[in-house]
């Protein structure tokens, strides 16, 4: 009922590649939107189908080039648009989208670059997009995904990252473009970090994000937890987390925990009533040696709180559940489905 892209039919095709001449085009797209752009073959569609449709990374190998813009629906109306590849140097292919799509305070750009591909070509395309976009929206967040880093050594990855960053900053300074909203991510469809990168992009578009963060902070300190995430359980993208410093391993671990939760719940699918809204007040506790506990508390049919804490604290489970239920209620009010 929540309109996820992966509920059966896959992404919905929308719009046409040519866009015609509607000036209001921006308004036809969802207000909260992420635009996935980049050179052909850089991995845009692969990333989205791995995250939204649970496609196995290896199965993207034969992926066809995208001809038509496609949309993936997320929580709270956030929509991710996958665009056909753009090649700055190829005049036949380069059919720039209507600049109106970049407008709005809740629009974010993800530009996917193939780390194995032609950098100069990719950068030329990137700058042509940035020029157009910043002309209508100087504060547009620009997230550069340096993709396909799976075949690079740790050292080479850092080099590529540095190199890309230098070149982008240099050119932006030179062309007088605003680089304050530019962020870089090293990504690959073969690693779960891709979901963290997407989480960071999407977070800024979540309605009432700062209130959510405040609620999670207070939950965290009241219940003496180490870390709290608000997860979209199907895509395993987090929409918010408390603002304490994050150990880079913790997201990976949280993600694996959700996967393990899926694995074990799979056993009991037959015990769920067929016409259920998915809200079953589920509570899951993982106990680890060395006194770590993970507590997953269902908020509604697609959101869950994932809390990491020490055993001593979560031992007072009834208190935690009590706090959890209050937080869940507050979140349901702020984030209507």
């Amino acid at each position: 009922m929540n309109g996820y892209g992966q509920d059966g039919a896959g992404p919905t095709e929308s719009g046409s590649p040519g866009y015609g001449s509607t000036d209001k085009l921006g308004e036809q797209l969802a207000e909260r939107r992420v635009l996935f752009m980049g050179p052909p073959g850089s991995g845009k569609t692969s990333i989205l189908s791995v995250v939204f449709e649970d496609t196995v990374a290896y199965d993207t190998l034969g992926m066809m080039p995208t001809q038509q813009q496609a949309a993936y629906q997320m929580v709270a109306g956030i929509t991710i648009y996958d665009f056909p590849g753009i090649d700055y140097y190829s005049e036949t292919q380069y059919n720039p989208p209507n600049p109106a799509i970049y407008e709005g305070d809740y629009t974010s750009l993800v530009f996917v670059i193939d780390s194995q591909g032609d950098f100069q070509n990719s950068l030329a395309t990137l700058f042509s997009v940035i020029r157009t976009a910043q002309a209508v929206n100087p504060q547009l967040p620009i997230n550069i995904f340096i993709n396909k880093v799976d075949s690079l050594s740790e050292e080479l990855k850092q080099d590529v990252h540095q190199d890309m960053q230098q070149q982008v900053w240099k050119t932006m300074r030179y062309e007088n473009l605003n680089s304050a909203y530019v962020q870089f991510f090293l990504t690959t469809i073969f690693h779960d970090d891709i979901r963290e990168a997407l989480s960071r992009v999407v977070q800024r578009l979540v309605p009432n994000h700062s209130s959510l963060e405040t609620i999670l902070n207070s939950f965290c300190s009241k219940s003496s937890l180490d870390k709290v995430f608000l997860f979209d359980v199907t895509t395993k993208i987090y929409l918010a987390m408390d603002s304490s410093p994050t150990d880079p391993q913790i997201f990976r671990f949280a993600f694996e925990t959700l996967k393990a939760m899926d694995d074990v719940s799979q056993l009991c699918i037959e015990y769920l009533p067929p016409s259920d809204d998915g809200m079953m007040s589920q509570k899951v506790t993982f106990d680890l040696e060395g006194s770590i506990r993970v507590f997953v508390y269902q908020v509604n049919s697609y959101l869950s709180l994932l809390c990491v804490g020490s055993t001593q604290v979560i031992r007072q489970k009834s208190l935690l559940e009590f706090n959890g239920s209050k937080v869940a209620k507050a979140i349901r009010q702020i984030l209507p489905s």
Partner: peptide, 23 residues
């Protein structure tokens, strides 16, 4: 595979408990 994941937080899987309206 979850056991392998727990290594990242320097720990070891011990137990899991799931409860909801139906089971």
């Amino acid at each position: 595979s979850y056991r392998n994941a727990c290594v990242h937080v320097q720990s070891r899987f011990q137990s899991v408990e799931v409860s909801n309206k139906f089971y």
